[in-house]
Design a binder for these strands. Structure first.
Length: 210
DNA sequence: GGATCGATCGGCT
DNA sequence: GCCGATCGATCCG
């Protein structure tokens, strides 16, 4: 069975469905002829102008214009003066929404990814939206890239489907406020997966050496 | 282990 | 001018 790139029809659906179904799929970045790849383990949905945490909540601007475009494109933004974050545009053209890729589990191209983040622990290679962009060499040159085009250098491939029992949901990281949308559980992640971002807890075995 | 803070700069009020 | 969909260093207990 040939490997299948996720299609524009896949991305052009309700954002929460797309976010949920992106978990477990394989994000691939073609970098100097080499495939850098990781399994998506954590995502967040940003949904339209009614979502005050969505960059498009105040209307269309030069920065967020890609989110208003057709689904299946990369929306990459620069934040805190030093980091990039990767989103994939969802829903019908004209409705601004996207899924933020917050973490992946490295699958291929480990050595190159580590070279792109010199001196950093392997455990943090792709754990967090800024980190995974650095490891996959994703920056503003990827903004607007069409993940559905056969010749693009960034795409998502179909991988094994996951049971709902493997997935957890919660409020989005770094999003606070009293309005309902700001407290919505629109962050999805693989339960107990060591590559999911955020503070590790005592029950986390990832730092054990046993 | 957990809290706090500085870095660093584009976008928008 | 202010602040952010973050990260990593540092300080504290």
């Amino acid at each position: 069975m040939p490997i299948k790139r996720l299609t524009r029809e896949f991305y052009g659906r309700a954002t929460l469905i797309v976010a949920r179904e992106l978990l477990g799929q394989r994000l691939v970045r073609l970098y100097h002829g080499e495939q850098l790849a990781g399994r998506i383990v954590e995502v967040e949905a940003y949904i339209g102008q009614g979502d005050q945490a969505c960059h498009a909540s105040m209307g269309r601007t030069a920065r967020n214009a890609v989110m208003f475009g057709p689904p299946g494109q990369a929306y990459v933004y620069f934040i805190y003066g030093m980091h990039y974050c990767l989103n994939i545009v969802t829903e019908a053209e004209g409705f601004p929404a996207a899924v933020l890729i917050r973490a992946v589990e490295p699958q291929a191209g480990l050595a190159t990814m580590q070279a792109l983040r010199p001196g950093r622990p392997l455990a943090d290679l792709t754990r967090g939206p800024g980190r995974l962009c650095a490891a996959l060499a994703i920056d503003l040159s990827c903004n607007g890239a069409d993940l559905c085009a056969p010749d693009s250098a960034l795409w998502v491939e179909e991988d094994a489907a996951l049971p709902d029992s493997a997935i957890a949901a919660g409020p989005r990281i770094g999003v606070r406020g009293d309005m309902a949308a700001l407290q919505a559980p629109w962050r999805y992640y693989l339960q107990d997966n060591p590559w999911v971002s955020g503070r590790r807890t005592v029950t986390d075995h990832t730092t054990d050496h046993r």
